[in-house]
Structure formats: C-alpha cells, structure tokens
Design a binder for these strands. Structure first.
Lengths: 214, 214
DNA sequence: GTAAACTGCGAACAGCGTTCGCGGTTTACG
DNA sequence: CGTAAACCGCGAACGCTGTTCGCAGTTTAC
C-alpha cells in the first residue's frame, strides 16, 4: 500500500541512459496513450497490456520506461494538471480569483473524470501540481493570514472541488421507491416536499469556506 | 462501471430459499469476516478467496450468498454504518448536534479506514445509511430551510468528513527537499515561514459550511 | 415418491501487474 | 579500435484476481 521504495520518485528519474539503441516510445508517449484510454473508457481500461497495445507493443516493454502502473498513474495525473496552464493572472479581488481557480479545477475533473480516482492515491506532488499550488499561494499573497491557514484552505478548496466533481458523476438517487414510513419518517416527509436545489451551491460553499478559514 | 443489473439490490434479496440443506455460512457471517480482514490489512486483503479461507471454505461458495464482490462491499459499508447506532438524541442547539454527528462519522472512518474507499463506489443507500440520513434530517427539522438545502448541506458535511478522514490517513508531505526557487517562488517563501496549523480546523470548517448553506 | 431447489466444492477461464531471459544495438572507455 | 557495459523490444511465464460451472448430496414442496 504505502510506497516504501527507496528509489527517487518518477519525476526525478531520467527517461533514458546514454547507451543503447534509441527508444521507439518515450515516457510522454506512453502517458498520452494511457490518458486517451482513460478519457475514453475510464480508469479500468488503463491496463498495462491495453496501453502497450495502443502503442503497438507488448506489456513488458512499458517497464523499460516505468517501474510500475502506479508510476504511470502519477505521471498521468501530473500531466493533466499541467492543462491548468497558463495560470490565470490574479485580479484585485483574491476571493474572486480563488473562485476562478476552483472553477478551473472543476473543469479539469470534467474533462478527465478518472482524475477523481487517481489523485487521492498519487504518491506525492509532481512538478505541475507543485506549480499549481505555488500559483494558488501567489493569489493568496495579499491575504494577511498564517501560511498554515492558507495551506489548510487550499487543501479544503481542492477537496471540495473533488466532492462536487464526484457528485456530478454519480447517478441521481434511485427514486426511493416504496420507502418504509415507520423506519424513515423524516425522509418520507422530506421526499414529499423536496424543494428546489440551488444553482449557485458551488460558489456559495467555497465563499463560506474562505470566510471561515481566512 | 455503472450498475446495469435489473436484479433488485442486495438488501431486498432474501438470504435463502426454503428448500435445500441448511447453509453452513450466513450472509452476515461472510460480511463480518470480510470486515475483519479489511480492518486488519486493508481493502486489498478482502479477496473472495481470502474471505472464503477465513471461513474455512472455497471462493465459489460465497457466490451462493452474494452475486459479486461489489455486493459484498455494499453490505460491508452498510453494516459498519450501523455502528453509528444508537443515534444520539438531538439537543436544543442543532448546530452543536450536527457537529456531534460529524464527529461520530469521523470516528467511524478512523475505526474502518477502508470505508473511505468503499463508500464513494457503493451502488446506493442501504438500510443503515438511510436510517442515518433520516436521523440527520430529524436533527435539521427545526431549521427553517428548504429540504433541498438540507440535502445539500448533509451531503457536503459527509463529504467534508471524508476529506478530513483522508487527510489523517495520508502521509505527511515529503519534506520538500531542494525545491527549485525560481520555479516555485511562493512555495519556497511559505516553507520558510510555515506557521502553526489550527487544532479546531474540523469544527471551524463545518460551522462555516452550516452558516453558509442553512 | 418424485421433482425442484438449494447446498458445498473444486476445477477452470480470462484478465491483471509484474518479472525474466533472450538476441540485437548503441555508446563509453581503456 | 575493440571490448564491455548499458539499453532496447519482445514474448513467455508466474501468481493473483473475480467469476462461472458442473458435480454430487441434502432438504423441502407438491
């Protein structure tokens, strides 16, 4: 489960040495093929054999460029995080700027839904993730708050974005057919008067978060 | 991925028919063995063969009581959600009561860390999950708000609890050795003055959420 | 009493991540 | 300049996974 490897993380390892024939596939090529499969058919479609087949080779070949499937997932995640560039310039209102960053993240999750499953199990921050985090800190620069508070706020902001991304993906509740009235009295009356969901829940939640933590 | 089965969910299916010899293992027994494995060695240790071996039988036997491993995970999740009983009585202050419910949920995640992975992929609400949700609605009964707003708030409360549970499980950040100053300027200065994390982040976040949404 | 329905069981299947040895190719070094 | 080290693609193989299926035996319903 936990990464116990003494080897340096994948981002610090060189792609190839100096000797030997030129590789027919690069690390970036493999990652791109894997992302294509994940975008099209979900994360389960990203098997080593499938990725290799998409590149016209065998599964064993991939291990010349990666040391494990988890490495591949790390690289995939950091690469799509790079799609958040160019990082938008911070305006005068940092709250509005931060909201814009959150919306950008939500868009990324919509483009690559598998990211919701991959990100929580990545082994660490890649260079693009660090760059994004650095940019967020820059937006928060004018805020007079402890750096720990900024870290906490950004972590929770990212987390809340994943919650919304997940809720968008999950199917609507299964219509509650024939609910037992005696067992779930409050639920029954609430179903009878469901009310109307608010369209600005995303912004409202994040604004509440910011005002509570910064 | 998505459950396309026309069969009724596992909770509505009877455990056995009337004919045939008495079964040596019950559905509850299987679920309990699986939970024991998950608590001890994580979710990956819950393979059909391992669960069957813990019960002294073969993997194929389990399919007499369950139709898939996903069914087993559904049952495991709903069963540990039942540990939240007896549901605490609501006091006068609904904010405080709701905070107590959130703390109860966090404790459940600490006792069964695998629940963090299982819950987002369950196929629906089990009877215990419905009971918990019903109780939360009861606590929110005196709040003059739209039922949709209450649904949204409870969903986000549960989500935020999972974020905190996840952050407790994840390893501390890897010490940021030798960070490139030119690439991550804001990060470098923030590391130089890390500040002190706030001990009441959990409560503060949830209070902010409640006041923003209800 | 017969047939239907259920039981545990173990072999089997396809797929998975990963390892390893093979022959061939390119580069670094004495 | 030749030799050795390092890298390449490749395919077979290992152990594991979830799941299916036929077999023989047991209990119940009609």
């Amino acid at each position: 489960m936990v990464r116990v490897s003494d080897a340096p993380p994948i981002w610090n390892r060189p792609q190839r040495g100096s000797r030997g024939p030129q590789a027919t596939h690069s690390r970036a090529e493999i990652v791109q093929a894997a992302i294509g499969l994940a975008d099209a058919d979900g994360l389960d479609a990203v098997s080593m054999r499938a990725v290799a087949a998409a590149l016209g080779t065998g599964a064993g070949t991939l291990y010349r460029h990666l040391s494990s499937r988890d490495d591949l997932l790390d690289l995939m995640a950091d690469r799509v995080v790079g799609e958040l560039r160019p990082h938008p310039g911070a305006g005068a209102d940092w709250t509005e700027a931060l909201l814009g960053l959150a919306r950008l993240q939500l868009g990324l999750y919509r483009r690559h839904p598998w990211l919701i499953e991959v990100l929580p199990r990545t082994s660490g921050f890649g260079p693009e993730a660090l760059g994004w985090f650095d940019h967020c800190l820059g937006v928060l620069a004018p805020v007079p708050a402890d750096n720990a508070a900024k870290f906490e706020t950004l972590a929770l902001m990212t987390g809340v974005v994943t919650l919304f991304a997940r809720s968008e993906r999950s199917a609507p509740p299964p219509a509650f057919t024939a609910l037992d009235v005696t067992a779930y009295p409050n639920l029954v009356v609430a179903i009878g008067d469901p009310g109307t969901p608010r369209p600005d829940l995303f912004e409202r939640t994040l604004r509440g978060l910011f005002s509570a933590l910064l």
